[in-house]
Amino acid sequence: MHTLLSRVNNASAFMSSCMMTLLAAIAISSFFLGSQPTGEVGISPVKVFAAKGRRHYSGKQDAAFVNFNVTADLAPLFHWNTKQLFVSLEAEYTNMHGVQNTVVIWDKIIRRKQDAQLHIEGGKNKYAFREVSTSFKDVSPASYALKYNLMPYVGVLQYGEIARTSDDVPFPEAQAKVAS
C-alpha cells in the first residue's frame, strides 16, 4: 500500500504542522502576558562644547554631554517567552533646519529578571552626542525618553516607552574648545 517513505513524509508533515501551531500560540499569548514597566528619568543641565573635529566632512562640530539619573523596574516585562531586553535613553529634538532628530545616548542589554532593576545616578552619555549641522545653536530643547525593545524567544519584537522627562532640557551656548 504505502511505502515507508510516504509514511515518514506524512508523519513529519503532521509534526511540523503541530509545531507551527504551538509556536503561533506562544507568539500570540506573549502579547497578553507583559505589563507596563515603571520608571523615572532625570536630566542635569546639558553641557555643550565647540569641538574641533578631525573628520573630513566637518572642521567643527559641537558636542553635548548629558548627566542623567534613571530609576526603572523592568521586571514586569520578563515572562517565560522573554529572551532579553534592550533599554535605551534617547534624546529627541528638532535642529535649526526643522529636522526631527532622535539620538541614542545610552543603552543596556538585560538578559535576566534579577538584573531588571535599574538605578543609575550620575550616569553619562555612552555615545557621542553631536549635532550633524555642526552647532546646537538655535536648536529646540530636547526631551529625553527611556525606551525598551523586548526580544522574545518566539514572536515579534515589542517596543515601548518606560519614562519621559516632564520638561524639555535646553542646549546652552557652546563653551571652550575641546580637541576630539
Rank of each mutant, 00 (worst) to 15 (best):
A11G: 05
T134K: 09
H97F: 13
L85I: 05
A51I: 05
V156I: 09
A91F: 03
A27R: 03
S16W: 04
L146T: 05
K147N: 10
W80H: 07
I109V: 14
I26P: 00
V87K: 02
T94W: 07
Q158C: 01
F14T: 11
G160E: 04
N125L: 07
P172H: 04
F32T: 06
T71Y: 09
V66C: 06
L89Q: 04
H119L: 10
R7F: 04
I162N: 04
P76C: 04
E173R: 06
S58N: 11
K60Y: 07
A128E: 13
P76A: 04
N95G: 09
V156K: 12
I109Y: 10
P152V: 03
I109T: 14
L146F: 02
L89E: 03
H119A: 13
E92A: 15
T134D: 11
F31W: 12
S88E: 11
W106V: 08
A63E: 13
M151R: 06
S16Q: 14
Q158V: 06
S135Q: 05
D73Y: 00
A63F: 05
A179S: 12
M96A: 15
S135G: 02
K52D: 10
G155M: 00
V46P: 01
I43P: 00
V169A: 05
R54K: 15
M151H: 09
F171A: 05
P37G: 06
S166H: 13
L146G: 01
F129G: 02
T71M: 07
Q175H: 08
A51F: 03
D62Q: 05
M151A: 09
R7I: 08
S140L: 15
Q114P: 00
K126L: 14
Y144Q: 08
S180D: 14
S35T: 15
V132Y: 10
V156M: 09
V70P: 00
E131W: 02
F65H: 13
M19C: 11
F136M: 12
S180R: 12
R111C: 03
K147V: 15
L118I: 15
A142F: 03
A64D: 08
P152S: 00
G39H: 00
S29C: 05
E173Q: 10
L77R: 01
I43A: 08
V8T: 09
A116H: 01
G53S: 15
A13L: 14
A91I: 07
F65D: 09
F32K: 10
L85T: 03
M96C: 10
A72Q: 06
